[in-house]
């Protein structure tokens, strides 16, 4: 089953226990950033070292793993991480959302609704939502401890003052369980409402920053906003060119050097499933 040189899922058992303790604490205090002794992984920081460690700690031999990067199952990062666990843990892998028990993601929450037996693991580059407003880590920790979150609204205020609307389109701050303000990693704000009352467990791992945080199943997750400028989802005004979906998050793809472009679902599994069911979009002229 295993490649002989590795322990199951690459990390040694003591390291996995340490990470599991951090995860349990994170689940007990939703949205709170728990420090953990992040390890060197055989990939560079920024490629998902935090997510990989969390996945390694929770993976069992019976799990089925799905890895997505920007919603896609077939980008370099997703394929590498999937192969990594195929090799070191010998677990089954899939690209189908409904078949997976553990889904590691960067940027997206799958379009298909998540279920109770699933765990969504996010790769997080910067866990601290207050980082760019207050550079002192000692101060941001104190602000979390005392729930002083006025500064978060300063950021949204700036958006409205300069752009006329809340222009933050990803890493949009949320309040978890009416207590901690959390950065949902670089997911587009389109996905924010999916985090609220989600039946699946959501775990966040930041490898370089050595932090783990969590949103337990069925926890309230509220996107911050102003009374007169409420939170709004954002999506390109177009149907998917491949499957015709009008409710999924779209990627813009440039297709020639004359300004041609097409919009396609960012969630490749969702798009393929719809096409297999017979849904078709309207392809732009250039591809027809």
């Amino acid at each position: 089953m295993n490649a002989p040189a590795y322990n199951f899922a690459y990390l040694d058992e003591q390291t996995k226990r340490m990470i599991r303790r951090a995860i349990l604490k994170a689940i007990a205090i939703p949205g709170y950033q728990v420090p953990f002794a992040s390890r060197e992984m055989p990939m560079p920081y920024g490629w998902g070292t935090g997510g990989v460690q969390v996945t390694a700690a929770i993976l069992g031999p019976d799990d089925t793993l799905k890895v997505i990067d920007q919603g896609s199952d077939d980008t370099t990062n997703a394929i590498s991480i999937r192969k990594f666990f195929e090799k070191t843990a010998g677990v089954a892998t899939t690209t189908t959302t409904s078949e997976a028990t553990v889904i590691q993601t960067r940027h997206r929450i799958p379009e298909a609704p998540l279920q109770e037996h699933q765990v969504l693991v996010y790769q997080v580059p910067i866990p601290e939502p207050l980082r760019f407003l207050e550079p002192r880590e000692t101060e941001t920790r104190r602000m979390h401890a005392l729930a002083e979150y006025g500064l978060m609204h300063v950021k949204l205020y700036e958006d409205i003052a300069h752009h006329g609307h809340i222009a933050t389109s990803y890493a949009y701050p949320v309040k978890v369980n009416a207590r901690y303000v959390m950065d949902p990693s670089p997911t587009p704000k389109f996905d924010n409402p999916k985090m609220d009352d989600c039946p699946a467990l959501q775990l966040f791992g930041a490898g370089r920053e050595k932090r783990i945080y969590a949103v337990p199943p069925h926890t309230t997750v509220v996107s911050l906003d102003f009374e007169d400028h409420p939170f709004e989802r954002y999506r390109h005004e177009a149907p998917c060119a491949l499957c015709g979906a009008t409710d999924s998050y779209l990627d813009e793809v440039v297709i020639d050097d004359r300004g041609g472009r097409m919009f396609v679902c960012s969630d490749t599994d969702h798009c393929e499933t719809r096409r297999a069911d017979g849904h078709r979009g309207v392809q732009p002229e250039a591809l027809a």
């Binding site: 407003l133 006025g150 500064l151 300063v154 205020y157 003052a161 009374e227 400028h229």
Partner: peptide, 23 residues
């Protein structure tokens, strides 16, 4: 806060005590 606008500088304390109406 030198990185944010004058308006946000003045408004920060209000937001800190729970004002959530931009206007």
């Amino acid at each position: 806060r030198m990185k944010v606008s004058a308006g946000a500088n003045v408004g920060e304390r209000l937001m800190a005590v729970g004002w959530e109406h931009y206007g």
